[in-house]
Design a protein around this nucleic acid. Structure first.
Lengths: 130, 130
DNA sequence: TTGCTATTACGAAAGCTTTCGTATAATATT
DNA sequence: AATATTATACGAAAGCTTTCGTAATAGCAA
């Protein structure tokens, strides 16, 4: 626990984590079906299985092997991971300028009034010193 | 030119693009030195050379071979590329929710008053319908 | 029981990116 | 001119991730 855990899921692993984060503990079959519903390219069942097994090895996921159908669950926190990946992304793509990125995101995205209000509220909160 | 160009630079390529975007047309030597000043791990000269040659092949960069020392320049637009990568990132990491990501970014980042003002101005602009 | 289907396990191939060694050539130095 | 330095070219190895074929097994159905 003292050693810093470097979270660096691969693309496939991240896709699988998204399913686990969204749906909770799941079987390989469920994850594979979900991925195939969404994505364009068909992913083979054993491919998903293999990656999930690797994720268990890496402790990105934990699995319950009591039943024949193993149940996998995310073993990394969603917000934590997002925060970590966000930092990396900002560094590598926006040379560390989170603000530049936020401006891009706001400019590109068609934000709703409600969303904009939320952001304004957050800004107010920050300005008041958290 | 009609076909859509899929921009998917690798990590190394992106690091090099950052140097080219920031400093403009550069030699391999300069790029390699710059990368090595910043980063922790030493990158071999021929490694950088190779990747930049590949980037020229992929048309991520163009190069001038008039002189013995070739000069490379980015051949993809910075904002365009950032926008593209941002979309991918939001999709894969925040399940498409740009707002969720913006909130994370604002929450994590110690934004200055000036930066917050900029964002507020942008929001006002968006609310007035661009 | 006898087969049929679903699941895990495993290894290896395929596909990418990164790294490096070596050869060759151009330029600079002495 | 001879030598040293610097640059490009190229191929191949190393390292990862993804994909798939195959085997073994458990559970279900006829």
């Amino acid at each position: 626990m003292t050693a810093k855990n470097i979270i660096k899921p691969t693309e496939s692993e991240l896709e699988i984590l998204q399913v686990l984060w969204e749906h909770g503990p799941s079987s390989v079959r469920f994850v594979n079906d979900t991925l195939n519903e969404k994505g364009t390219k068909e992913i083979g069942y054993t491919t998903t299985l293999k990656i999930m097994q690797i994720m268990a090895e890496k402790n990105l996921a934990k699995r319950n092997t009591d039943k024949r159908t193993h149940i996998y669950d995310a073993n990394v926190n969603e917000s934590h991971t997002q925060k970590h990946l966000l930092k990396n992304f900002v560094d590598s793509t926006f040379r560390g300028s989170a603000m530049k990125m936020v401006m891009q995101a706001l400019g590109n995205h068609n934000a709703s009034e409600k969303e904009l209000d939320e952001i304004k509220a957050l800004i107010t909160k920050i300005e008041k010193g958290e």
